Amino acid sequence: TNFTTRQLTELEKEFHFNKYLSRARRVEIAATLELNETQVKIWFQNRRMKQKK
């Protein structure tokens, strides 16, 4: 998935405060950013892996 700059900014901002999202928060973010819930979930999984390295 190619994310827009706005989407990436918002996802990174959320990640800064929360490494893990509740389902409710994931649904909320997905709706706000016009993404589906799975895209948000996978982005967070990938971002956590990236941070571990």
Rank of each mutant, 00 (worst) to 15 (best):
R25C: 00
F44P: 03
K19M: 11
V27L: 13
L11W: 07
M49Q: 13
S22Y: 04
A31C: 11
V40C: 01
L35K: 00
R47A: 07
Q51W: 12
Q45K: 07
A24F: 04
E10G: 10
E10D: 04
H16W: 02
N18W: 02
K13L: 04
Q45G: 05
L8G: 04
L21F: 07
E14D: 04
R48S: 10
H16V: 11
A30P: 03
L8S: 05
T32R: 15
M49P: 00
A31S: 12
T38G: 10
Q7L: 03
A30K: 01
R26G: 12
T32H: 09
T38A: 12
R6C: 10
T32F: 11
L35P: 01
Q51R: 04
I42G: 10
R25D: 02
S22W: 05
N18I: 02
R23S: 13
K50I: 14
Q39D: 12
E37G: 03
T1D: 08
K52C: 12
H16N: 09
F15K: 01
L33V: 03
T5V: 13
Q45Y: 05
M49Y: 10
R26C: 14
Y20E: 14
H16P: 02
V27R: 11
T4K: 03
K13E: 02
Y20C: 14
H16C: 13
A24H: 08
T1E: 15
Q45N: 10
E28L: 07
L11R: 02
F17Y: 12
A24I: 06
L11N: 01
A31R: 14
N36R: 08
Q7Y: 02
F15P: 02
Q7S: 03
L8Q: 12
I29S: 02
L11P: 00
K19D: 11
F15T: 01
Y20R: 12
E37F: 04
Q39C: 09
K53V: 14
R25T: 00
K52A: 10
V27P: 03
F3K: 00
A30L: 04
R23I: 09
F3E: 04
R6K: 14
I29M: 07
L8P: 03
T4Y: 00
I42C: 09
L35A: 06
T5M: 11
M49W: 05
K41Q: 14
R6G: 12
H16M: 13
N46P: 00
R48N: 08
S22D: 11
M49H: 06
T38H: 13
A31E: 15
N36L: 05
L33W: 05
E14S: 04
W43R: 06
E28H: 06
L33K: 00
N36G: 10
A24T: 11
K52T: 13
E37Q: 07
K53I: 08
N2Y: 07
T38Q: 14
E37A: 05
A30Y: 04
Y20T: 08
Q51I: 12
T4G: 05
F17N: 15
L8T: 08
S22Q: 07
F3A: 00
A30H: 01
A24D: 10
F44I: 00
L33P: 02
R47M: 08
Q45I: 06
Y20W: 11
R6L: 11
F44V: 02
Q51K: 06
K19E: 15
K52N: 14
R47P: 10
N46W: 10
K41C: 12
K13D: 06
R23E: 14
V27A: 14
I42N: 15
N2K: 13
L21C: 13
Y20S: 12
R47I: 00
K53L: 08
A30V: 01
T5I: 12
E12K: 01
F3S: 02
E10F: 09
V27C: 08
F44T: 07
R25K: 09
E12W: 04
H16A: 14
V27K: 12
T32Q: 13
T32P: 03
R47C: 00
V27M: 12
T38F: 06
F3H: 02
N2Q: 09
K50L: 15
E10R: 06
T32M: 14
K19G: 09
I42Y: 09
E10Q: 13
T1C: 09
K53H: 11
A31N: 11
I42V: 12
I29F: 01
F44Q: 02
L35D: 00
E37C: 07
I29K: 01
R26T: 15
N2E: 15
I42D: 15
L21R: 02
W43G: 05
R48G: 10
T5D: 15
L21Q: 06
I42T: 13
T9K: 15
Q7K: 01
R25W: 02
Q45P: 05
T4P: 02
L11C: 06
L8E: 14
T5Q: 13
W43F: 06
R25L: 05
N46T: 10
E28F: 09
W43E: 04
Q39R: 05
F15L: 05
K19W: 10
T9I: 10
A30C: 06
S22F: 02
V40L: 03
I29Y: 02
E12L: 05
L11H: 04
R23T: 13
Y20M: 06
L21P: 15
L33E: 03
T32L: 13
F17C: 12
V40A: 05
K41N: 11
L8D: 07
L8H: 06
A31M: 08
I29R: 03
L33H: 00
A24R: 12
E28N: 09
L11S: 08
A24C: 11
E34C: 11
S22L: 02
V40W: 00
L35V: 09
E10C: 14
I42S: 10
R26D: 04
R23Q: 13
Q51P: 08
E10W: 02
L11D: 04
T5K: 14
L35N: 04
T1K: 08
E12G: 02
K52Q: 11
E28M: 09
A31L: 10
A24L: 08
N36K: 10
T4S: 08
S22C: 06
T1W: 07
R26I: 14
L33D: 00
N36W: 02
A24K: 13
F17S: 14
R25I: 05
Q39Y: 07
L8V: 13
E10S: 08
E10M: 11
L35Y: 00
K13S: 04
K41W: 08
W43Q: 03
T38L: 10
A24P: 07
N18L: 04
Q51M: 07
Q39I: 04
A31Y: 07
M49A: 13
T9H: 13
I29P: 02
N46Y: 09
K41I: 11
K50Y: 09
R6M: 09
K50P: 08
Q51C: 11
N18Y: 05
E14V: 06
K52Y: 14
A31K: 13
N46K: 07
R48W: 10
W43S: 01
H16R: 12
K41D: 15
E12T: 02
F15Q: 00
R47W: 02
N2A: 08
F3P: 04
T4F: 00
K41P: 02
A30S: 05
Q39K: 07
R6A: 14
H16K: 10
T38I: 12
R6S: 13
S22R: 02
N46R: 08
Q51D: 13
T9Q: 10
Q45V: 07
V27G: 12
A31I: 05
R25H: 05
Y20K: 13
A24N: 09
F44M: 05
Q51A: 13
W43V: 03
H16S: 13
T1I: 11
Q45S: 07
F15N: 05
K41Y: 04
K52M: 14
R26S: 15
E37S: 08
